[in-house]
């Protein structure tokens, strides 16, 4: 069984992680983090990226190891599950109409953040998890990018924006010298 792959995003295929309009929900109206994660997990499931236990695994993990990140303007969350639930690597993104509270990563138990953008990660091996966490961190740390993302209302615009900022331009450029 294969995930839907129209072949229209060749960079996506090369990077091995799909970022597609089908996996984006803008103006997501939910009242708590469980609903937010469920809505995004359903997209991943519908399109064949994850196995049946994915949602449950993500919710369980989120309850014990919350993933809300205290970014200055727009707190985000990066819920995820163990690699075994991923069939085809992908990232689903929800831009919330109204923030919902997510537990804060590394925070005191019970501390929460009003999260506005959720990146639900379905990644299938530890190296990929590390690589994509780094890519997301770089995106989060660039001033104004999340603000811009939050204002996009079209799913395909969100997907295009994220592909532009998260995917390597060419596979051989994945390793960048230096940092900062």
């Amino acid at each position: 069984m294969r995930a839907k792959n129209s072949g229209k995003h060749s960079y996506t295929a090369k990077a091995g992680v799909t970022i597609d309009a089908d996996l984006v929900i803008t103006h997501l109206r939910v009242t708590n983090y469980t609903e937010a994660i469920s809505a995004l997990a359903e997209r991943l499931s519908q399109h064949g990226y994850v196995t049946a236990g994915f949602l449950e695994a993500v919710l369980k993990r989120e309850a014990s190891q919350p993933t809300g990140l205290p970014l200055p303007d727009i707190p985000v969350a990066i819920p995820h599950a163990e690699a075994e639930y991923c069939k085809v690597p992908a990232i689903a993104v929800g831009i919330l109409d109204q923030p919902v509270q997510f537990g804060e990563m590394g925070g005191d138990s019970g501390s929460t953040l009003p999260v506005q953008i959720v990146f639900l990660l379905a990644l299938n091996n530890p190296d990929q998890q590390v690589e994509w966490l780094q890519r997301l961190v770089l995106l989060f740390q660039q001033p104004g990018l999340l603000q811009h993302l939050k204002q996009l209302s079209q799913e395909d615009a969100v997907a295009a924006f994220l592909r532009e900022h998260l995917l390597p331009k060419r596979p051989e450029e994945q390793q960048k010298p230096g940092g900062a």
Binding site: Q65, L69, L71, P72, M105, G106, V137, F140, Q141
Partner: peptide
Amino acid sequence: VATTQVPAVDVPVISGIPFITGI
């Protein structure tokens, strides 16, 4: 250096979250 809550230990514990958020 931790990105989660760590049980009480005898050595200093510093949050690694700033390395993730950049703040």
